[in-house]
């Protein structure tokens, strides 16, 4: 009898605990989503005045906000492409070859990851101003590429740890030259690691504030724009854009995590 009660208590406590965790995780998101549909027009846009799509319509009139979003996406795409390419080559090279100073290079990889972003931001700013590179899209792309590279390397390397070098030898043994081996064997086998690294680089770039703040010049990325606007409370059109981004992200995650991709591939 006692044990039964204990079991019930255990179960309820577990449920309660999980509920709280999830509540804290999702409450802010819920606030944003509901805020984007709130018809109130008075600051601080908190009281519920009924359901409306007005903010979404307004959002598409807010060219400054939209263009900042465009800039963010552009930067994210280009820096992802660059960091993924560089990171993949680096990871494969470091896995395959032994050279002097490998351990040092290995260790140095962690520095950009562990140092406070503000230090990275300031040092990049110093670098760019000392070399007289005008701060605009280019510097933003360079900075984002810089901090994303280690993450790509870590991801690809994790994939490489279970990688059997002899499959490349087997491919060459069967008549494929190095380029064909790279295309047919190395890249497809490493693809999950590369994709994971790219996805991480992309998300890091999209929501980066600190490094962008130091290296942006006149270009306003979306997070910087949001930062700016909260001086006067979060405007509901920002909520609306956030909600759209959220929806986009969720769809992306569901798509990549589920077997949809695999199923499509199999059907071919």
């Amino acid at each position: 009898m006692n044990r039964k009660i204990k079991a019930i208590v255990k179960k309820t406590a577990g449920i309660l605990f999980c509920s709280f965790v999830y509540l804290f995780l999702f409450l802010p998101i819920i606030v944003i989503v509901t805020g984007s549909f709130n018809a109130t027009t008075t600051k601080p846009y908190i009281t519920w005045k009924g359901f409306t799509f007005d903010w979404y319509i307004k959002l598409f009139d807010n060219t400054a906000l939209l263009s900042s979003f465009g800039a963010t996406i552009t930067i994210a795409l280009i820096s992802t492409l660059l960091s993924t390419a560089i990171g993949t080559v680096a990871a494969v090279g470091m896995y395959k070859y032994k050279f002097r100073g490998k351990g040092l290079i290995d260790g140095l990889l962690y520095i950009p990851v562990v140092i406070p972003e503000i230090v990275l931001g300031i040092s990049l700013l110093t670098l760019f101003s000392n070399t007289h590179i005008p701060r605009d899209m280019l510097t933003l792309i360079l900075s984002h590429t810089t901090f994303a590279i280690p993450y790509v390397i870590f991801n690809v390397r994790a994939r490489l740890s279970g990688y059997d070098n002899s499959i490349e030898e087997a491919s060459m043994d069967l008549g494929a030259n190095r380029l064909l081996t790279l295309k047919n064997i190395t890249l497809p086998v490493l693809a999950p690691g590369i994709a994971g690294g790219a996805l991480l680089a992309f998300t890091l770039s999209i929501d980066d504030v600190i490094v962008s703040y130091f290296t942006n010049g006149q270009v306003k990325t979306f997070p910087l724009k949001v930062m700016e606007s909260i001086k006067s409370g979060v405007a509901p059109d920002v909520n609306a854009l956030s909600t759209l981004i959220l929806a986009g992200t969720v769809i992306l995650v569901v798509f990549t995590q589920s077997d949809i991709l695999k199923k499509i591939k199999r059907r071919k």
């Binding site: 499959i167 030898e169 087997a170 043994d173 069967l174 008549g175 494929a176 030259n177 086998v189």
Partner: peptide, 20 residues
């Protein structure tokens, strides 16, 4: 001659099958 130019083939100890 590169490995891919030689008329010999290898069976590897670890099989080295292409997993994908």
């Amino acid at each position: 001659k590169e490995p891919f130019e030689r008329d010999v083939n290898t069976v590897f100890q670890s099989y080295a099958l292409f997993p994908h």
